[in-house]
Nucleic acid binder design. Structure first.
Lengths: 246, 246
DNA sequence: TAGTGGTCTAGACCACCAC
DNA sequence: TGGTGGTCTAGACCACTAA
């Protein structure tokens, strides 16, 4: 097998060449050499640089495109994926209205301050208990009515000074990317139905005990680190959460 | 552009060759020429048959594999995907326990009888109101306790005689496939939190008004027809519904 | 018009599996 | 040992975009 990084001999490296090329390119995105929105060198340039054929580079790029990490545009080039509204709508936010159309809620920040990680935050973010975290609470609305209460916790070492940012944008992953160089590439969610507590009920204008959808999300950065823990409590009387299965 | 099916001239056919080959192969699966679990001819045989290169067949097969419609096994061949427990667990059923391990609930059928499609069934299954449907109600349990109440409606023309089947298997998509030649390839789900009504509460052993997760699913057959409408009401006190986002 | 990604082909060798 | 899919290469031509 051809290799870019020769195997040690003891543990035979099993990765195919295109996968090695993919890792190298992913590394450049993690290091910030290739920033979100930037255009990559052409396939032929990359092939020459890595010492492989264009076909191998193409397969590596196809694999990155399949994970939504790069966007290919015929005639223009290959670009590092950015977090914009479209991406939020189709990959990370799955609320739909009565007619099935996708909806992106607005947002109003209630609080944003630093603290020390409690037991649950430490476990979810895989950091030490007591480590510095920033906590954001916001209410998100759809059609002018509050629909979601969101509690976000992030480690301060990944987002230094986040609590001092004056106005947080609606799609917060854009901020992570632009201001802190952290790209969210993947997330895991667990959903459950729970009763609205007094505080939630008040903030969302519901009765205490009314059923709400709890979405517990861990979002991962490009390098695989857990970068954000978010619990969203949704009033689903007027909306649904969409999932597509294959 | 090379073509298998020459374009009419009026509407220039834009599909690339590998996509045409993919459609042809999908057609064989829909017609039942290639049945679930069967091994496909080798890439070279397919290439010769369709009059294209092996690389083009490979790209078509890769596309089918990406949709989980075929399974490729190095050294053995390419197989038409089957609905087994693994597929249910990783593609269609996303319940996880406290520790995040995937769980497949058991099932007990409460009723199974024919009827005429009401307004909602007609809309969801895209059939005429009053058309014959079979309705199944079952309770599914996890760890010995009832956890899900499931109401299933299917059109009789796709599943003639389904209501007479004596014992329905736990993974019902296997039955659709084996007994009726209908392969479920894709599904759309909408989730919401609702209050348990009296009947649900009784069947799942809950209090009336307790929050439950409602999963409203339309399952589509290989040919794109809506083949099943299913509403699952889940007690999520001990389990979560998992979603993975990219 | 020049440059990009998209498609298609052809052939070589490798890794895995069944016999 | 023979056949399968997996990887890699090389080169041709097409379709789209921007200047």
């Amino acid at each position: 097998m051809n290799r870019i990084i020769p195997s040690s001999g003891l543990v035979p490296e099993a990765k195919p060449l295109y996968a090695q090329v993919k890792e190298l390119m992913l590394g450049r995105m993690i290091e910030g050499v290739w920033k979100p929105g930037a255009v990559l060198p052409s396939e032929f340039q990359l092939a020459e640089e890595f010492g492989v054929s264009q076909g191998t580079v193409r397969k590596a790029l196809d694999a990155l495109a399949a994970e939504n990490l790069v966007i290919r545009r015929q005639g223009r080039g290959t670009f590092v994926a950015e977090h914009d509204e479209d991406r939020a709508l189709f990959h990370f936010f799955h609320l739909v209205g009565r007619n099935g159309e996708r909806r992106l809620p607005g947002g109003t920040v209630l609080s944003c301050r630093d603290g020390k990680a409690n037991k649950e935050e430490a476990a979810r973010l895989r950091i030490d208990r007591g480590a510095a975290v920033t906590r954001i609470r916001r209410v998100r609305d759809l059609d002018g009515a509050p629909a979601i209460l969101e509690d976000i916790s992030v480690p301060c070492d990944l987002f230094p000074g986040l609590s001092g940012v004056s106005d947080l944008p609606n799609t917060i992953y854009e901020l992570y990317e632009r201001n802190f160089g952290v790209t969210i590439s993947r997330a895991e969610e667990r959903l459950a139905a729970i009763e609205a507590g007094p505080d939630v009920a008040k903030l969302l204008g519901l009765d205490v005990g009314q059923p709400i959808l709890e979405i517990d999300r861990i979002a991962f950065a490009l390098d695989g680190r857990a970068a954000e823990w978010r619990v969203s409590l949704c009033d689903t009387r007027h909306h649904r959460y969409l999932a597509e299965l294959v």
